[in-house]
Simulated scan of single mutants.
Amino acid sequence: MTTVADKLARKSSQKSSSKQVRLRLVYIDFWSALKLSFLAAIAIAIVTVVSFLLVYLVVDTTGLIGKVDEFFTSLSDGGVSIRQFIGLPQVMAFSAIVAILNLVVVTVMGAVVAGIYNLAVKVTGGLLVGFTSN
Rank of each mutant, 00 (worst) to 15 (best):
A41P: 08
M109N: 08
I65N: 13
M92P: 08
V108G: 08
M109K: 01
A41Y: 12
R10P: 00
S133Q: 04
G63F: 09
L101Y: 15
L101D: 15
V58H: 07
F52V: 07
G66E: 11
V108S: 08
L103M: 15
V68S: 13
Y56C: 01
V121W: 04
F52A: 12
N118T: 04
Y117P: 03
L34F: 15
S32W: 08
K67C: 00
Q20T: 09
V104I: 14
D60M: 00
V105L: 15
G110T: 08
V4F: 15
F38D: 02
V68M: 15
I42P: 01
F72G: 01
W31Q: 04
G87Y: 05
T48F: 06
K11D: 15
I46N: 09
A9T: 01
Y27H: 11
S51I: 01
T61G: 11
V98W: 11
I44N: 14
I82V: 10
T48G: 12
S17K: 06
V106E: 14
R24H: 11
A111Y: 10
A111V: 04
L34C: 09
A41Q: 10
L128V: 03
F85Q: 02
Y27C: 00
T62Y: 12
Y117N: 04
G125N: 06
L127C: 00
D60A: 01
D6M: 02
L25E: 08
G63H: 07
T132M: 05
D69H: 03
T62I: 07
V49P: 03
G66M: 06
L57H: 03
V4Y: 15
F71G: 03
G78R: 06
N134K: 03
Q14R: 13
A114S: 14
T61H: 13
S37F: 07
R22N: 11
A33I: 02
D60Q: 05
Q20K: 10
G125Q: 05
V113E: 13
G79T: 03
K122T: 02
V4T: 11
S17H: 12
W31K: 02
S74K: 12
A99S: 12
Q14H: 11
